[in-house]
Design a protein around this nucleic acid. Structure first.
Lengths: 102, 102
DNA sequence: TGTAGTGTTCCATCTCGATCGAACAGTTTA
DNA sequence: TAAACTGTTCGATCGAGATGGAACACTACA
């Protein structure tokens, strides 16, 4: 887990980003400072807690996300520069995507 | 069918490009002049003829591909500038991807 | 201690899309 | 006309991944 974007294939990156829930996670993380949002603050997303945990694991697996333990919670950071370097242009497409409801 | 890239969602574009066979089609078309390759010249890809036809339909559906009848065959053109305009940076990622075998 | 909160793991279900073969439609040529 | 070629459509199968609930591990705090 916690792969570096450098070692990630385009296939894996596209698989990870083709899920709308994961793109919402990425967008929300892009809008806040690093290490400011634990996983629990994403409970408004319309999926179960275990499913959310799965999505975070996928994002970690492609190097889009970094997580750090702080007490009982797990803080998140978007590895934006690293990912931009590996897949230039891809993240901006996700971040400018209009939100879909709910 | 034959949607314009302008009216295509990022979701649809990512769905279309997350398939490795479709990315190979896109790459091969990018390497030849417009209208120079009929669908039949993709029979080296490791899928059945009907599956290939399905992939072409998906690529048409997201505006990546334009097809034109010429007698019994169907010539293809990559709608590169239109797609680049709608999803800047995405097509270059696909075109620079290393080929996977077979 | 124990209780609450956070996140993961396990397991089962289910949906969607890739796949293929066969039949079909259209075009060209014999 | 028939035969060959090109591509699509149809119906069915199959597998990968999203999903949710329950149990679990860990931390913090009463």
């Amino acid at each position: 887990m916690h792969a570096s974007p450098v070692e990630v294939s385009l296939q894996a990156a596209l698989d990870a980003l083709s899920d709308p829930i994961r793109r919402r996670i990425v967008r929300e993380l892009a809008g806040v400072p690093d290490w400011s949002r634990p996983c629990g603050t994403f409970s408004h997303l319309p999926v179960a807690k275990s499913t959310l945990s799965h999505h975070f694991a996928v994002l970690r697996g492609v190097g889009l996300l970094e997580q750090r333990d702080e007490g009982p919670r797990r803080l998140n950071r978007l590895r934006r520069p690293e990912f931009d370097d590996r897949f230039p242009g891809l993240l901006p497409l996700i971040l400018t995507e209009p939100e879909d409801r709910p």
